[in-house]
């Protein structure tokens, strides 16, 4: 097992929500972010699902990486193995939710397949691998990144609702103004850096 960096999991959790939001500073998960954020309710559902999946996948991929992939010496295949793990987690989650909570399935189910190709999930897993986090750090980072994504999409959905009825130049309508809004949000989030002391 590699030497893990000395970053406290709690700090990692909050830092990945605020100071280095996976969407606003790493651009991960922008596609579904723009597509779904039109609607506040869907944003909530997708955000919740993403948080769960990233958290779970970070933990499971950590185990797969250090217990299977590295002992077998097949690190070069890690991308495709991660993708398959993510797809499997999403599939299992879908079945479990369907089985135990049909009402949650109704509100969440349609978003689950979208998550497999959400780059935020694979991104968080790859960051976990490159930064050599240990198990607890990986889970904290995973849930933190998911929660950060969730926070960002909820904020954006609320802002977009306000923008809807405002006069926006024709060429900027839709995606254009949304990107500019995300840019301002990213600027605001930079203000958080330095707030969290990593000890």
């Amino acid at each position: 097992m590699p030497e893990a960096p000395l970053v406290s999991p709690l700090v990692l959790f909050f830092a990945s929500i605020l100071t280095s939001n996976i969407l606003l500073s790493n651009f991960l998960g922008t596609c579904s972010f723009i597509a779904i954020s039109k609607d506040w309710k869907s944003s909530f559902g997708l955000g919740l699902a993403v948080t769960f999946v990233i958290g779970l996948c970070a933990g499971i991929c950590w185990a797969v990486l250090y217990l299977v992939v590295i002992p077998l010496g097949i690190e070069y295949l890690s991308f495709v193995i991660f993708i398959i793990v993510i797809a499997a987690v999403v599939q299992v989650l879908e079945m479990v939710i369907d089985r135990f909570s049909p009402s949650l399935y109704m509100s969440l189910g349609i978003f689950l397949p979208l998550i497999t190709v959400n780059c935020a999930v694979l991104g968080a897993v790859l960051f976990m691998q490159i930064r050599k986090y240990d198990f607890i750090q990986s889970i904290a980072f995973g849930f933190g990144s998911g929660a950060g994504w969730w926070l960002a999409i909820m904020l954006l959905a609320a802002i977009r609702k306000r923008i809807e009825n405002n006069p926006v130049p024709a060429g900027l309508k839709g995606t254009g103004i949304t990107l500019i809004t995300i840019g301002f949000m990213a600027m605001a989030f930079i203000g958080f850096s330095g707030m969290i002391a990593v000890q």
Binding site: L24, N26, F27, I177, I180, G183, A186, M187
Partner: peptide
């Protein structure tokens, strides 16, 4: 930093 990329794409 990140925000400028969003602005430029827009």
């Amino acid at each position: 930093m990140a925000p400028s990329a969003f602005f430029l794409v827009a």
